[in-house]
Design a protein around this nucleic acid. Structure first.
Length: 215
DNA sequence: TTGAGGATGGCCT
DNA sequence: GGCCATCCTCAAA
């Protein structure tokens, strides 16, 4: 069932220029927004899966040792980071998992926001839900998208999205229905190689939400 | 051309 | 907590 808020508030689609603001602002503001994914079910019907974002990380460019563009590293993979905010940066890690990033900030400022976790909105299409859940098993719904690799697998996101605009025509877009959850800051995950930067508070989480990837 | 290693997650102990 | 699948990226040679 939709919550009262979802019934009462009309959602608006975020335009690409929303992402040209400072990366830390974008990362914080994304908590509580709705990531939408257009998908086709087994019968060929087009459906939209909606996930509310509960966890993001900011990677703040050339001065951030954890960022792919640190020290001005500019390669065929990272070149998209030098675009103006509002496009997708997707890459494969450990040869297994796709990471979904949103390029943020101004052009020539190679920064991005990693989407780490979320949870399915109650008003997502039931058919797709049941398809993923399987017939006989009741999965832990709230943990389905608790991690950047799990999230992209569930939303069927891969490098085909690299460089696409964050907009409806890409099949992946973000909506704002006015939800403003409580926010906490944490150190980022999985960047032990980054020296002192591993302690920077650039991980933004929905305070104490059960869908978070880590404490 | 080569080799090391990674913004993870699932399984095993 | 440890192990490791799996393959792309990137720096070095």
């Amino acid at each position: 069932m939709p919550t009262t808020q979802e019934q009462m508030t009309k959602a608006t689609i975020l335009m690409p220029d929303w992402f040209t603001r400072p990366t830390c602002v974008v990362a914080a503001d994304l908590i509580g927004k709705i990531l939408c994914r257009q998908m086709t079910d087994t019968d060929g019907n087009v459906k939209t899966l909606r996930m509310r974002v509960s966890e993001t990380e900011a990677y703040i460019g050339e001065d951030d040792p954890a960022c792919h563009s640190h020290a001005g590293t500019r390669t065929s993979r990272t070149k998209i980071m030098y675009e103006q905010g509002g496009v997708f940066y997707v890459y494969l890690t450990y040869g297994v998992h796709h990471m979904l990033n949103l390029i943020s900030g101004s052009a020539e400022s190679p920064e991005s926001v990693l989407i780490r976790a979320g949870f399915l909105c109650e008003n997502s299409d039931r058919l797709i839900e049941e398809q993923a859940l399987g017939k006989d098993k009741q999965l832990n719904h709230i943990k389905q998208l608790a991690g950047p690799g799990k999230l992209t697998k569930r939303l069927q996101i891969d490098r085909d999205l690299y460089g696409a605009p964050i907009a409806f025509e890409s099949g992946v877009w973000i909506e704002d229905d006015g939800c403003q959850p409580p926010l906490s800051l944490r150190p980022r995950i999985g960047i032990d190689y980054a020296g002192e930067a591993k302690d920077w508070l650039l991980r933004y989480v929905w305070t104490d939400h059960p869908s978070l990837s880590k404490k």
